[in-house]
Design a protein around this nucleic acid. Sequence first.
DNA 1: AAGCTTTTTTTCGAGCTTCGAAAAAAATAA
DNA 2: TTATTTTTTTCGAAGCTCGAAAAAAAGCTT
Lengths: 415, 415
Amino acid sequence: MTVGVRHDDLRRRNRALVLTALRASNQRSRTEIANLTGLSNSTISAITSSMIDEGVLIELKGNDSGLARRGRPQVALALNPKLASVVAVTLTLDHVSAVLIDYAGEAVDEDVQDLATQELEGQALIEAVIDCVRRVLTRQRENGYHPSRIALAVQGTTSSDSSSMLWSPITPDENTRFAPALAAAFGVPATVENDCNMITVALKWREPARYRTDFFAVMLSDGIGMGLMVKGELFSGTQSSGGEFGHMIHIPDGALCRCGKHGCIEAYAGNYALIRTARGGSDEDVPGAVVSQVEIEKLADAARASDGPERAAFVKAGRAIGFGLGSLFAVFDPAPVAIVGPGALAFDILEQPIRDAIARTAGGKHSAAISFETEPNEMPLIRLGCAMTALTKVDAEIIVPGLTTEKVLKRRKVA
Amino acid sequence: MTVGVRHDDLRRRNRALVLTALRASNQRSRTEIANLTGLSNSTISAITSSMIDEGVLIELKGNDSGLARRGRPQVALALNPKLASVVAVTLTLDHVSAVLIDYAGEAVDEDVQDLATQELEGQALIEAVIDCVRRVLTRQRENGYHPSRIALAVQGTTSSDSSSMLWSPITPDENTRFAPALAAAFGVPATVENDCNMITVALKWREPARYRTDFFAVMLSDGIGMGLMVKGELFSGTQSSGGEFGHMIHIPDGALCRCGKHGCIEAYAGNYALIRTARGGSDEDVPGAVVSQVEIEKLADAARASDGPERAAFVKAGRAIGFGLGSLFAVFDPAPVAIVGPGALAFDILEQPIRDAIARTAGGKHSAAISFETEPNEMPLIRLGCAMTALTKVDAEIIVPGLTTEKVLKRRKVA
DNA sequence: AAGCTTTTTTTCGAGCTTCGAAAAAAATAA
DNA sequence: TTATTTTTTTCGAAGCTCGAAAAAAAGCTT
């Protein structure tokens, strides 16, 4: 049963609203916040003034945005970048990167490292990630940054409690418990999230006009991932990160997938599948090593040039993706689709087969109306999603009224 | 942007909590409600006493539940059945029924009518539904029932604003705008909902222990429907009722479906598909008329008796359902499944093929652990779901503090 | 049967919070 | 320098929840 609403919950909620308004756009005046939230000016005044005292917000002075109007000028409020910081870590095939981000969402410093992820056992992988984070932190310690959270994004399935990477294509190890290890190493809470989910979160922050309430983010790379935004909320699985679009079944008992099962969408549309098909391999050929981006680009160029086996491979892939989307649309209803990742570079070849397939499904009733946007470079999105996920959690601690920021931060240190 | 929380929202929320607690179990004392909601005894006392004044709640006196304990006895509170009423209407193939339900959720009177739905145009169908409702109401008017809402459940897709039936197998008409017509005829708000969604809602009310937060309700009948409960909320589509499990693609460009597309799950597992397959028809045969339940029972008996074409038909159907569930599990993660409707009577033949197929998918990792419960009789569930949906909406009007119940009811009359 | 114990329910004052109105502040316009 | 306009703060009123205390309503004891 949901628990009753007490009096301080009210203040907490409204503090959260103020924080959200400022996260969505770097700076806002009290009056703007009042209009945005529907709360009265006096309430916003009370809330912001206590948040300024706590060091959560700062006034941006001497910041007249050009136009000089009559009347007392609005004074812009902003999140205090020095209040806290978080580390957004991204672990992909052969690379790990850690970015230190201040409370206002600006990147402070970054460390990128090559890593033979496929040859690293779980513990070694964890340590490599920790090292990467440590490098940024030692470099920035003198500047007074003590991050209060670490968010890691990985390719692969993660647990719904954000503690473990359950399975990933980038390493043989299973159920790697990143979160506890990172938490222990740095004395702050840590989470592991699925990369596609982070992309989905990021799209909403970056382009709220286009990606508002309902959309699908499909990641085309070696594997096929997906993130779903449904009714304005990230839709994750009930037990895991969910959204394993690549492992919906395209052809029952069909082509061999990297996951060991047969007929998954990925077994037709993943990079390895494209290569397998284009080179005339059998559907039963065991998925090979990870394909370089250059190779896929060559394949795409060949497909564009002539109607040979390369083009057939892309058509087969598009067909798998299209029928999969059609099935999804039957359950969720049609919604805009963002095609993210390297595969977006070949979307010109994929689009028609995808649309043709969707049109052959009941779910794709209005297939022509479905919008596809492409975004080949997924890394900035993953980082943004990670950063916003972590910062939103910091916000959740800060909104507790009566608890001064120092207390919040101290509590973190102890934990 | 979410709107700020004002002071009276607080009271409204807590009133809602009290109402929910009483809806979930017929009667509860103030102390029980306080413990359940986490609110203080004084608050519950204040809220319930004003709700009693408003006529929303009543005290059940002289109702000592046997055990005589020391101390002042708890006095049971209950929803006042006379406060309001709703009509739950169910429109299925060849039948329409309307049940008058009091505010406490008890059925008062019912009208059932045979109806040649497949031969009725939209307007005639609407009028038949209106007539059915009118019969119950005129019969009960002398007893002082003036329902404040009408909820209609139909087989088929409905719009997400609950105003129209977009498509249904029971009638050739499309986009039948039931809700405005019912609202106009009776002067109260009306909604149209998908039957499977109502079943899903009902399962949660009826067996909260088993069907709590995440489960799938699959309806096996002439068509294949589904309702999803995800994280404790009914999951409906963004534009329509969604959850069109039957029209996820099983075999791309496969068997001809009733919807006109090819390869839908329904084209293998719907009643018409079972008959088509068992009788050695081609996958391209146009789906025939609606199959009687008797005929399907005969088919099931034949399948049980010997390993002939009938059993092959059920295996093919189970395989389609299983692969579909596997794809769903990839997106939502595995969850309990309730098999509802006439098809549940043949579940003994279907279960093994379903489990076999699920086990062949990545989503069905733990296929053996997935629980299936069967419930052949769907009508009571549809009605319960309808009733609870309507009553919950009545609750939402009643919780507005300061607005006396008379005002709420008067407002309804005017509207 | 009267008083005691136990449990539930109500009453009452304190402490928050939000709101509207009025006041104060800070700029431009005249 | 004064008037005007707009933003922000201040202040009192009203509403809500809470804890403590009081009242109510039963069984238990002697």
